[in-house]
């Protein structure tokens, strides 16, 4: 019992970070039809952009916006100059996945070469520790949780109530029919890269803040957790990704408390495999989206 609540608290924070990343990833996948494995690389590169701005004396909470912008712009460029030219040739779906894997490796190890492989930390205070319902949470962790809540509510409002969000969902569901309805789907896809890229940049910085210290390869395995959350919820389903992130976040942190943190990714995929055995299309997914 004494281990459970603290690990539950860690799980909530891990889930919050994972939810931001997973919602961006699955939104990108649903609308653009690209399983972008370079997502982790863009996350960590954005985290480093925030770091470099932070090193000039700017608060990490302000520098974070530069990281967000970096994620948005890099993701948009990635689509515009790499994925779209490939997609125009109608390649097999796996080809674009392999291309994204290549981009991921270039982004990650290119960054590692620049920073000489050393781990870094933001200049920031963790704030005082609070004891809430048996959980030990710092002020920074509460801020991360609040950021996650704002992001998830905003995504919900965007997708459900805005004209852009409905056009994004229509494009994801049936791009050809959306075009027949007058939706400029190329524009919608571009905007989706910007929005999901911004979420990727935000997730990268928040991930780095939560981790304390981070390096160029810190997000390599994190993509595995993002994929687990996304496929658990149902690929292309933002609300599913939120629930998937909560499940994976809690399962990995609670298991780490009782076993060892080395098994985090193992536990994540055990949860995923167990769930997919009962619901092959994920919690919110359908045959079509899968």
């Amino acid at each position: 019992m004494s281990v459970f609540m603290p690990s539950f608290g860690f799980g909530l924070i891990s889930a919050a970070v994972l939810a931001i990343a997973a919602v961006g990833f699955t939104m990108q996948f649903a609308v653009t039809n690209v399983l972008n494995l370079a997502y982790g690389s863009i996350m960590i590169n954005s985290a480093f952009v925030t770091y470099w701005v932070n090193r000039t004396g700017v608060s990490v909470w302000l520098a974070l916006f530069v990281g967000v912008a970096c994620g948005a712009v890099v993701s948009w460029c990635l689509n515009r100059f790499i994925y779209t030219p490939f997609q125009r040739r109608n390649p097999a779906a796996i080809t674009v996945v392999i291309v994204s894997l290549g981009v991921d490796l270039i982004g990650t190890f290119g960054l590692q070469a620049i920073i000489s492989g050393s781990d870094v930390s933001y200049i920031m205070s963790q704030g005082r520790e609070l004891h809430i319902l048996g959980m030990d949470l710092s002020v920074v962790e509460l801020i991360i949780f609040a950021i996650c809540a704002v992001v998830l509510v905003s995504v919900r409002l965007l997708l459900k109530f805005s004209r852009l969000g409905k056009a994004m969902r229509a494009t994801a569901a049936n791009r050809s029919l959306a075009r027949n309805s007058g939706v400029k789907t190329d524009l919608i896809v571009s905007l989706t890269w910007l929005i999901s890229g911004a979420l990727c940049g935000l997730a990268g910085t928040v991930f780095a803040i939560d981790a304390g210290t981070f390096g160029a390869t810190s997000a390599e395995l994190y993509v595995v957790l993002i994929l687990a959350a996304v496929f658990l919820g149902g690929p292309g389903e933002p609300y599913g990704a939120m629930l998937g992130a909560l499940t994976i976040g809690l399962a990995t942190e609670i298991s780490a408390a009782y076993l060892t943190s080395d098994y985090k990714e193992v536990v994540a995929f055990l949860v995923l495999l167990g769930m997919l055995a009962f619901r092959p299309f994920g919690l919110f997914g359908s045959e079509k989206t899968s």
Binding site: A172, L177, S286, K288
Partner: peptide, 21 residues
């Protein structure tokens, strides 16, 4: 179109709204 003539995940109202995009 003959098939795929609506947006299945969207509600009836949202389908009409997209029609009026």
């Amino acid at each position: 179109p003959q098939i795929d003539d609506v947006f299945p995940p969207l509600s009836v109202k949202e389908n009409l709204e997209i029609g009026g995009y």
